[in-house]
Design a binder for these strands. Structure first.
Lengths: 138, 138
DNA sequence: TCTTGAACCTCTAGCCGCTAGAGGATGTAG
DNA sequence: CTACATCCTCTAGCGGCTAGAGGTTCAAGA
């Protein structure tokens, strides 16, 4: 199974120049090339690139994604090391879930707006005050 | 209650130049100024800016944040309009929660790694294949 | 086999969302 | 009435893409 960069782009919803950019910054390995220097990809690349896209949409920085990807790629890593990296990201992820859930609940209340005046809207408050990130490390 | 830009920055964890930038692009209203042109903020600004920071950390673009903020600020809006905007964001938010939850579960399994070889790690798969976003609109 | 056009290549420049620094003015504490 | 941290504006740079110029490749059809 061999995909052109355009086919990879269609399957992952990641634009062609972005794929080349990810290669350039080392997020994606350099793929095989045809005699005429065109890139050819395999199904591993599809999965990896899908992961990258989702992670970016979820607000992770490229460096964080690189770390997460490295977790899966380095079976030689010590368990403790993996533990540390993973725990740091877990904290971040749980925090995001809490905040997204609060936002979702508030928006859901707004959608059921027949019993609610817009002026009562508390969208801002729901993310503004709790400060879950105050003690996070990043 | 009147805050300097530096105090606002400390309370919200948003850097001073970023606050000025948000003002420049219209995310934050132009604040009152002293005679010497220094900015002075109130507690509304603290809440609004906290909201913006959280939303950005959750991966929302500035335009999306602007829309969400507008929901709270425009009591003249028709209910249907608010409904539409809100529903679109709700879809996005729910999707993010699903994906973050999947990622959290997988990382949690990794943290309990004494019973698991790293080579079994499925971090990529968990976000790679489900394609929840395939039918989203943006 | 040869042609043709979509898709590929590299390279450079630009956009968004910040962030840092120069060079100078403000304002509060002592 | 200083002193100096903080503020101001302005410009330039960085991370993460995105678009376009100018040229090459390659597979499908004549």
């Amino acid at each position: 199974m061999s995909l052109t960069i355009g086919e990879l782009s269609r399957q992952t919803q990641v634009k062609v120049p972005t794929i080349r950019y990810y290669e350039q910054i080392g997020l994606l390995a350099e793929p095989a090339r045809t005699v005429g220097q065109q890139r050819r990809y395999g199904s591993d690349d599809v999965r990896r690139l899908n992961f990258i896209r989702h992670a970016r949409e979820l607000g992770f920085e490229v460096d964080a994604i690189r770390q997460l990807l490295d977790l899966t790629a380095a079976p030689s890593r010590s368990c403790g090391e993996v533990h540390e990296i993973t725990k740091a990201h877990l904290t971040e992820i749980k925090d995001k879930i809490v905040r997204l859930t609060a936002l979702r609940d508030e928006l859901e209340a707004m959608v059921a707006c027949d019993h609610r005046k817009i002026s009562e809207c508390r969208i801002i408050e729901v993310l503004a005050d709790h400060g879950q990130c105050q003690h996070a490390e990043h």
